[in-house]
Computed example of a mutant assay.
Amino acid sequence: MRRRKRIGDVGITALVSHAKNLVFLDLSRCSRISDNALEAMGSLSFLTALYLCGCYLITDHGLTSLAHGSSSKTLRILDVSECDQITDYGICSLQHISYLQELKLADCGPKVTDCGGACIAAMPGLRKLDLSWLINLSDSSLISIAQNCQNLVEIRLIGCEQITGNGIRSFSGHQSLEDLVLDSFYNVSVDDIVHVVLGCLPLSHLRLHRALKCWMPSSTQEQLSKLCKISWI
């Protein structure tokens, strides 16, 4: 039901009450969805995937309701990208979603900081993670995630301005990471990228800002392309 601008909390609450076996729900960019709808969704016992990208009325209260409801035992995929009223408090409540594997937090705003990053690192079951445009996440969050999220196969770090080469290098030696997305970085060097590719053996796809292509020697590009696929974005 994505982009249905006339669908709000009343409609979703009614849907949930009549569709107890709902497994997949996409309400992305339904701008009238708020915390009341999330509280109703929390009662679902079979929900595995929930997409709420651009539902900007959602706050920490809604995430907390979701994280403490029946759906916390079944939810595997959660997308709250562009929900910019969310803070560290709401992020930390997500630790109660026992089997969460894919979490999208892109562009959730400046109130998600390293405190929230530490809570993300405490979710060891994560396999895919999008932290793009979280401008107040720093290397300490990334280092904790690299150390503790050993099942991670994909991480997106577009526009994370405070992250430097030290944070990126923390994934050297990671045993599962296959897909790394970097863009709009000013504090990451070619050497940092080479260090990760050489040290992270499972890495098979590296996506980089095209501006880096000008700074990366052709010999280095050739060396890295033998180890993983490089896409310029």
Rank of each mutant, 00 (worst) to 15 (best):
G173C: 03
I233R: 06
H174S: 08
S218M: 10
G167P: 05
I77W: 13
L44F: 10
L180T: 06
S72T: 00
A118N: 06
V153G: 12
D107Q: 03
L47A: 11
D114Y: 09
I230F: 09
Y51E: 09
H61I: 01
A106Y: 00
L198D: 15
Q162W: 00
L203G: 12
K73T: 09
S17C: 02
L78Q: 13
G159S: 04
S231F: 03
N136S: 10
G173A: 07
I163M: 15
C108H: 04
I230T: 06
D60K: 00
M1I: 02
L227E: 14
R4H: 02
D79T: 01
G173F: 01
S98C: 12
I145L: 02
E102R: 10
L227Q: 15
S28N: 03
Q221C: 12
F171N: 10
L201K: 12
D183C: 10
M216G: 13
I230N: 08
K104N: 12
S176F: 02
V181F: 05
V197N: 11
R76Y: 06
A122V: 03
I33F: 15
P124K: 05
C55L: 12
C214Q: 12
T113A: 12
L224S: 08
P110T: 05
H96M: 07
N151G: 09
A146M: 06
L47K: 11
R127C: 15
T59K: 00
E178D: 04
C108Q: 03
L137F: 13
K213T: 01
D88K: 01
N36G: 11
C30H: 03
G11H: 13
S189C: 07
S218C: 08
S132N: 13
L208Y: 13
D139N: 10
L203A: 12
S34F: 13
I163Q: 14
I158C: 00
A146P: 03
G159T: 08
A67I: 00
K213H: 08
I12A: 05
L203E: 10
R6M: 05
G199D: 07
N21M: 07
Y99T: 11
T87D: 02
A37D: 02
R169Q: 14
G54H: 09
F171V: 09
R207T: 13
I97F: 09
E82G: 01
G11P: 07
S31I: 05
P110W: 06
H18D: 05
I193K: 11
S176Y: 02
S141L: 00
I12G: 04
L157Y: 10
L227F: 11
K128M: 10
T59R: 00
L105G: 05
L100W: 03
D88M: 02
G159Y: 08
S17F: 01
L22T: 05
H18V: 09
N151Y: 08
C115D: 05
L142T: 14
L57C: 01
C108G: 05
L177G: 08
A14E: 06
S138N: 04
Q175K: 09
